[in-house]
């Protein structure tokens, strides 16, 4: 349904050109949930905004690539054609629900407006549809809450309203940019559950952008791991969580605090800091932090290579080499030998 091919998104800043998205390709099929995981500065948010063409141009520009949605390349469409697709076919929800809602209009009016922009119907029908949407996203007493203003809603409720607005016209694809990061864990659990229900009911494909591997493991069918503007690993959730084949994914999973850890169990570090996108390191972007990096990694910029059915990783180590390296390191960790 959606196919991104060799997309490059660059941003012109005073410090130089930032290669926020650097040659990314992936596909999303109808009804699928694709998780895009990465740290801040990995380009995941810019990627999401690129699909919606929401990055301001300039300073953003797209020197290469295609974003094909149902046969049309979104990069070639006019602003008018894009507007038809935004909201109608692809909807987006954001991290901060408060700033995405207009504070001076009632929730109901904003919802009715969203329904009317994309569908021809009477105002009365639109209102009925709005109430239905609010019920769908689990807002208690929706009739009355239609007349409330955004500030009268809590963070979790606002995110529900945003999801309702996104659903207003039955989009085929929903892009969720860190939808639960601003929320508390118990509220996050509610929203994630809601998104799963919505997907079942509406059959919407979801692109879930997050920094939280836990959220991805709960939600996604397919996972893309991003690091400094690139996809460094792609695979099913099982591939990513049980058979990580790129040192970054593997180290990241190892470094996370876990509930099933021993009390006071020491966490395993990833050394160093995320790279600067203006002047990324030579060769493999991850090599300065990689526990297995060799001199070769300084020169070779690895491409995504096949590691299994639908499983790709960008690392010069072959699957076998990586496995033995992993074992060696895990063994060393157990014995407490410093790396």
């Amino acid at each position: 349904m959606l196919e991104v091919k060799q997309l490059k998104t660059q941003i012109d800043t005073n410090e130089g050109v930032v290669k926020a998205v650097d040659g990314v390709s992936f596909t999303v099929e109808a009804g699928q949930t694709v998780g895009i995981v990465g740290e801040s500065g990995s380009g995941k948010s810019v990627l999401a905004h690129s699909i919606m063409q929401l990055n301001p141009v300039p300073p953003t520009f797209y020197p290469e690539g295609e974003i094909i949605f149902e046969g049309k390349n979104l990069l070639n469409l006019s602003e008018r054609e894009l507007r038809k697709i935004r909201g109608n076919e692809i909807a987006m929800i954001f991290q901060d629900p408060m700033s995405s809602l207009n504070p001076v209009f009632k929730i109901g009016d904003q919802l009715v407006e969203a329904v009317l922009t994309h569908q021809k119907m009477s105002r009365q029908d639109a209102r009925a549809r709005a109430v239905e949407l609010l019920t769908d996203v689990g807002i208690p007493d929706p009739e009355r809450r239609m007349n409330d203003y955004p500030h009268q809603f809590s963070g979790g409720m606002r995110q529900r309203v945003l999801i309702a607005i996104a659903l207003a016209c039955n989009p085929k694809l929903l892009i969720a940019d860190e939808p639960t990061t601003a929320l508390d864990v118990t509220i996050q659990a509610q929203i994630l559950e809601l998104m799963r229900d919505i997907q079942k009911k509406y059959g919407t494909a979801i692109i879930m952008i997050t920094h939280d591997l836990g959220v991805v493991s709960q939600m996604a069918d397919k996972v893309l791991v991003m690091y400094s503007g690139r996809i460094v690993e792609e695979g099913s959730v099982e591939d990513i969580f049980y058979r990580p084949s790129m040192p970054y994914t593997w180290s990241l999973l190892r470094s996370l605090p876990r509930l099933d850890a021993e009390a006071h169990e020491r966490l395993i570090n990833i050394e160093g800091q995320p790279p600067n996108l203006v002047s990324p390191p030579k060769g493999c972007n991850f090599h300065p932090r990689c526990p297995f990096s060799t001199e070769q990694c300084l020169e070779v910029d690895p491409e995504l290579t096949v590691r299994g059915d639908g499983h790709f990783a960008a690392c010069i180590l072959s699957g076998q080499e990586f496995d033995s390296e992993k074992k060696r390191m895990e063994f060393a960790d157990k014995k407490g030998v410093p790396q």
Binding site: E39, S251, S255, L256, P257, L267, N269, P274, R289
Partner: peptide, 14 residues
Amino acid sequence: LDVSVQAQVINLLE
């Protein structure tokens, strides 16, 4: 903090 540096800081504190 970014997920990949959280562990560094926790370990440092310990």
